[in-house]
Design a protein around this nucleic acid. Structure first.
Lengths: 350, 350
DNA sequence: GCTCCAAGTGTAAGCGCTAACATAGTCCGG
DNA sequence: CCGGACTATGTTAGCGCTTACACTTGGAGC
């Protein structure tokens, strides 16, 4: 089923069919109708490969994310998707699972697909890759990593500021021993986040201390990291998490141990995904405007006809969101709990 | 940057480069090395469009889902993705948001991409679409809808049986007034699920009754549906949900109203997504083996060399999972709560 | 030394489409 | 009644690749 067959049936040339398909206005209404009828009857769908090969361009935007399972990435994707559809583009998504070799594969795949634009919402970026992309001349948006170039725009979030807000707030509640739960991808921005926490803490040093544990960027990962954090007898009065998903995992582990949140330990998330509002207790977190980020990326990669030129580096300031998972420090309760927990373990061993 | 340039640089013909790319074995080792070097140096990535146009086939599998945001769909996608990658295929995902016109668009897009196979994990399928797909000769797998054909395989889950297990269990705990929270996409399988609930309930009729409310397939949707369900004074002692995501929304609304789960009201989910284990209280639910479903789909769409032929209709039996969100009926507490809630509302009005 | 064959490589015809250019109608003013 | 300016449609050369087929070698077999 191809152009030629449609053309034959509609008694026109392939060029005319092509014109109808791309709704060029020059086609006479009656001809157009005839062609559309033929298309309909033959259930013809143009071969997109031939199209983008011949046209030298595609109407596809590539999106590469570290972990699409995390609603943070997903929300950005979703916003981009609706923007793209509205402008007649399609999205192709690739997931790296924080593995840099997967990122390389994905980027090559996207280049192979000759995407019209590429969004890389990932943390594990190699400088040579950026070089390669710069050479490819494909419009690219990096989130949080990379350096601006002619065809490369950077969007970053001021995590430092966000983490400071969290640390300041916890400090003001009297917390002095903190835990930070990260995830394994400690490259780039996450490492940056870890450093952000440490720096934020060090402003109160030595009165304020923090210890870190990391696991996967999943619910289960947050839980495991909590176990690691509490394993060696460290008893933080508040646990900061690299994001909300992890934080929900933390909540689960604390509940399991009979530690109440926020009465015994305070917990904070990051990102302000929908779930942070629906979990129990609802998470105190930091809002990252994912829809705004998505729109910005769309505007860069699919420039609107009359659109204004876009900056090559965009910085977004996050906002503190107070909910139920944080409260005044409660050393006594914590001590009691630790004791109870020790007893429990002792009993188990018997 | 194309085959010809690489060929020139490696001092071979384009055919040889192509052979190297597709690792045909006939190429001499030294030639192969020369070509690979040229590819490397020129940072050449084959144009996938040209490839699938010339080859008449693509190594891409299309996946269409109703709501990728719901981990149920996502888990299937993820399993398929890793299977596909392992076999050198790529996935292209499309989301319908339960809108049937979006499904039509997506299917046409996939046909246009000449995907090697198509998985439609959606509920809103029109018979004429199935006809169209049958004609396209693309291997297709439908989940829960459609009818088997030469190139179409069906996978279904025995929801009926799953719902019966839930209803039986709740009945055995003494529950007699049930609520069912569904979602808006009341077509096909969801309607099927609703009927499944009603049928399961009617076996105990008239002792057992159920009322239904529906909203979006999201956390927020579950919450809204709960409001609707409880709005007219109906006071179920247990709420069954169409899936776990919705159930977490229900939990949230009940908590807000000061209704304890499971002491005052029992809640059940469906699917057994990871979150059902991490929310509070952990959900009693029904396990749908999403990884198994994903593998089955992969095996159908990307047949392994020595693979056994696949049935054209596959039925999966779900399994009941008991957790913390269900308990013995407690009419007294419920009455007290209803009263308290009425008071609260009365107070608000003042 | 010659034939024959296999292994390795080159040649060129498409795959289905777009777009630049060519051509055929159509209408109007002079 | 004819030239020119449109408008509508046709012709055709690629886009970058795969693949059937043609061609060149260098031995092995005799």
């Amino acid at each position: 089923m191809n152009l030629e067959q449609v053309a034959r049936r509609a008694r026109v040339s392939t060029a005319t069919v092509s014109r109808v398909l791309n709704n060029a206005t020059v086609v006479k209404t009656t001809t157009r109708a005839r062609v559309n009828k033929a298309i309909e009857e033959l259930k013809y769908y143009p071969n997109l490969h031939a199209r983008s090969l011949a046209g030298g361009k595609s109407r596809t935007i590539g999106v590469i994310v570290s972990n699409i399972e995390n609603p943070f990435f997903f929300d950005i994707y979703k916003t981009m998707e609706s923007d793209a559809h509205a402008r007649g583009f399609d999205l192709v998504m690739a997931n790296t699972d924080y593995r840099s070799e997967q990122l390389v594969t994905s980027i090559r795949l996207m280049i192979g697909r000759r995407v019209a634009g590429l969004a890389a919402i990932v943390s594990e970026v190699d400088p040579s890759l950026i070089e390669e992309l710069a050479a490819s001349r494909i419009p690219v948006v990096f989130y949080d990593v990379g350096a601006p170039r002619r065809n490369i725009t950077n969007i970053r979030v001021n995590y430092r500021r966000g983490m400071e807000k969290v640390v300041d707030y916890l400090h003001s509640l009297g917390h002095r021993r903190l835990g930070f739960v990260g995830h394994h991808a400690m490259l780039g921005p996450i490492n940056e986040r870890m450093r952000a926490v440490q720096d934020a803490v060090s402003r109160y040093s030595p009165a304020l201390e923090v210890r870190t544990a990391a696991d996967a960027d999943t619910l289960e990962g947050g839980r495991q990291a909590t176990r690691a954090l509490l394993a060696d007898g460290y008893s933080p009065t508040a646990i900061l998490c690299v994001n909300d998903v992890t934080a929900v995992g933390v909540l689960r582990e604390l509940r399991e141990r009979g530690i109440r949140v926020p009465e015994d330990i305070s917990v904070t998330g990051f990102d302000n995904i929908k779930l942070s509002e629906f979990c129990y207790p609802a998470l105190t977190t930091v809002h990252i405007p994912r829809d705004r980020i998505g729109h910005i990326i769309s505007d860069i990669l699919i420039p609107k006809p009359g659109g204004a030129p876009i900056e090559h580096e965009i910085v977004i300031d996050p906002e503190f969101v107070l909910r139920e998972s944080t409260g005044l420090v409660n050393e006594k309760a914590l001590a009691a709990n630790a004791l109870a927990h020790a007893d429990l373990n002792a009993n188990k061993r018997k």
